[in-house]
Design a protein around this nucleic acid. Sequence first.
DNA 1: GTAGCTTTTTGTCAGATCGACAGAAAGTCT
DNA 2: AGACTTTCTGTCGATCTGACAAAAAGCTAC
Lengths: 252, 252
Amino acid sequence: MHADPWEPPAVLLAADLVILTLRGARLHVLLVHRGIDPYQGALALPGGFLRDEHEDIEAAARRELSEEAGLADVHLETLGVYGEPGRDPRGRVVSVAHLAIAPRLPEPTAGTDAADACWMPVEDALSSGVELAFDHARIIADGVERARTKLEYTALATAFCGETFTISELQQVYEAVWGIRLDPRNFYRKVQGSRGFIVAAGPMRRTANGRPARLFRAGPVQALNPPMVRSAHVTPQDGPAAQTAAEGVRQS
Amino acid sequence: MHADPWEPPAVLLAADLVILTLRGARLHVLLVHRGIDPYQGALALPGGFLRDEHEDIEAAARRELSEEAGLADVHLETLGVYGEPGRDPRGRVVSVAHLAIAPRLPEPTAGTDAADACWMPVEDALSSGVELAFDHARIIADGVERARTKLEYTALATAFCGETFTISELQQVYEAVWGIRLDPRNFYRKVQGSRGFIVAAGPMRRTANGRPARLFRAGPVQALNPPMVRSAHVTPQDGPAAQTAAEGVRQS
DNA sequence: GTAGCTTTTTGTCAGATCGACAGAAAGTCT
DNA sequence: AGACTTTCTGTCGATCTGACAAAAAGCTAC
């Protein structure tokens, strides 16, 4: 309030990335092996400090996305701020965590500068067997929870798919992220009925195994109406992912 | 990657607050008159720099909440990070914006240290007639949009109410934040059917004008199931707030 | 080239939900 | 006592949802 001689403390700002994608039928997160000082050898989220005084935070996140994962043009949003005083032994470091959603990729991370990056199933990454640097386990959990929630009421699922996709590909996104199984026929009807969610992408088709499927692309609408409610009427998946998916929806 | 002699740039961290409440039938935000250097005399969000090297960010937000608004025990969540390089002429300042939801208050902000704080209807604050400091107009808009969205699928609406509340009080929250009118009878049924949203608070009643209403308190569930969908079937409100509420839900 | 397999797409049907509205219940005010 | 206000309980038809049947449209194997 008054013009004090007091000076506010300065902090170091880092941009970290929770990059999620689908590999097979499971949700994966990108992790790197730390080569330097704190938590050396442990797994960590890709990220780094602001390059200079004038770099925008989201620009820094996109730079790391490109440098450490070789990714561009993917969905990117701010996830949260993690700045607990004791989290970094080097001093007061505040991490602005970002959530990035990447479509299925041809090769893991080959050809990138950071060849020490690897995709890991999120359930493995969050299991106690893996040592993650800093509070990155917390950040990953928050990112996954954000993705789970946003799948319900936004068109985020399309960010997991390529430019065009089939409805069953979209269904696999929901099944993998939510860890449940859905009825293909009801899913088909529901997705088609959510106005502006997906639009037909030409009369072309793509071959796989059964009947060729229609292709769609992401529609103009970001907020789904009606939403894709994750109700209690779901068949639990065979995998161990089903447990975590139930949290937050039930009561006694 | 390598141990460079390079040093990452330091920034100043501020915690700013979008404090929303209901006054009458309208959504209000708390603003303060800036007394110092940049944007002196303009209206701004309450907030300030970290006090010292060891203060947690959320702790700083709660401290400002108490100092500048005299509020404690209100809903508080991180809204986002606003750190555009040019936003503060004093240097690189990164603001961690928080969204706080306060129940209806007996008196505006009287008795507080910061007597220069005032509640303002959000539509007034966001109209072009008001000069807001920094990018605070953007932050307020993001906060309101966050509240609108979270009202749909979380129990956030109860944060606008006191410890106990009637169903029509809860309905006023939805009507004010969404800027629409809802049918009391359908709202009653819908809220009662959303499991864990609200629970009866004793057989007591409260007097007003008509038939005494039952009292409820916030239930254990945070994620609403089914959600309170803000569908297209709504009667537009008389006020000028109805326009902004429609955005993001429609397509052509 | 036809039978079998797989996957997509179109239906069907009963139960749940929703929006619009009627009307009873339970207070206050005049 | 009667008017008025607000809360609460229903009702009704349209829509939506979940479970399931079956047709459509490709491929593979024989």
